[in-house]
């Protein structure tokens, strides 16, 4: 059978990793007239070991924190050359929410015509599961260890990167979940139909770092949305966000128990309550009582 995905199989990402699925569906919509800038991270490292590559479109990696700045330069050169193509940045949560935040903020503020996609596996996975600003409250990582003194793990809530992009009045901002393929595709198509800086936040299962069953990659992120923990929404030009999917609001334990990184929490309901409080507050702010 001919494989004509623009993101080719045979790369080195782990079994059950959601990132390659996200990427190949986005490229399928974007088409051949696309240039990709990839921040350092799992996706970059595992797909381009010289002399092989999984990318059938022009692709460049420069460093960890500057994908948005590199894309800004590419877009400027294209303007000068009078060319048109989709420019997509792929960055992990670390490369986006932490070390790349400044470059991203600048790119959006300056209005470059680029789609930035954060594939969010909620930690620095490539370097071995260290916490990032996007690691959720209560998650174990190798730099938010769980012990006698700290029974919680990561003690800070997740940085709301997509909302920060709304505050930048980016042309289009949406959260996407590959487990909801119709919503996912519609938003990606919409993103490509709008000019200006656009941002997609895609939740991305990491069986290795989440300590989860590799065969349940999609089910797990489906639960992230169905519990309300990863709400699906969109916003244009800084307008209030619009919820695009009403979750079933399953008990969050359904989600937490699928992953070893939350195992310690299940024995400590007081911390799970705290997550529930935050969850309720978020949905209340957006007009939904749970």
């Amino acid at each position: 059978m001919k494989n004509d995905w623009l993101f080719a199989p045979g790369h080195g990402m782990c079994a059950g990793c959601a990132a390659p699925i996200i990427v190949k569906h986005i490229l399928a919509i974007s088409g051949e007239n696309t240039i990709v800038v990839n921040a350092t991270g799992c996706l970059e490292v595992a797909t381009t070991e010289y002399p092989r590559t999984a990318w059938r479109i022009p692709w460049v990696h420069v460093a960890f924190e500057n994908a948005a700045a590199v894309a800004s330069g590419i877009e400027a050169a294209m303007k000068k050359q009078g060319e048109k193509a989709n420019i997509i940045c792929f960055g992990g949560d670390g490369g986006t929410a932490d070390i790349g935040m400044q470059a991203l903020s600048g790119m959006v503020e300056r209005g470059h015509n680029v789609l930035y996609v954060m594939y969010d596996n909620e930690a620095y996975m490539n370097t071995g599961i260290q916490r990032s600003g996007a690691t959720p409250y209560g998650a174990w990582t190798t730099t938010s260890e769980v012990g006698m003194v700290n029974p919680i793990g990561n003690i800070r809530p997740k940085k709301p990167v997509a909302e920060i992009m709304v505050a930048h009045r980016a042309a289009y901002v949406a959260t996407v979940n590959i487990a909801f393929l119709r919503d996912f595709k519609r938003k990606v198509e919409k993103a490509f139909s709008i000019d200006g800086p656009r941002f997609l936040h895609a939740i991305s299962t990491c069986p290795t770092g989440w300590r989860s069953d590799p065969s349940k990659g999609i089910e797990i992120i489906k639960l992230a949305t169905e519990t309300g923990l990863f709400p699906l929404w969109e916003s244009e030009h800084g307008e209030d966000i619009k919820i695009t999917y009403k979750p079933k609001f399953l008990p969050i334990e359904e989600y937490l128990k699928t992953q070893g990184r939350f195992r310690h929490l299940l024995k400590q309901p007081e911390y799970i309550e705290r997550i529930k409080e935050d969850l309720k507050a978020w949905w209340r702010r957006h007009g939904v009582e749970i």
């Binding site: 240039i35 800038v37 460049v60 420069v62 460093a63 924190e65 500057n66 948005a68 700045a69 590199v70 894309a71 800004s72 330069g73 590419i74 877009e75 400027a76 050169a77 294209m78 000068k80 050359q81 400044q102 470059a103 600048g106």
Partner: peptide, 15 residues
């Protein structure tokens, strides 16, 4: 840091 990164992007695009 971003300026030199953008320089790389632009140069690689043939500018």
């Amino acid at each position: 840091h971003s300026a030199i990164s953008a320089a790389i992007g632009a140069s690689l695009k043939g500018a």
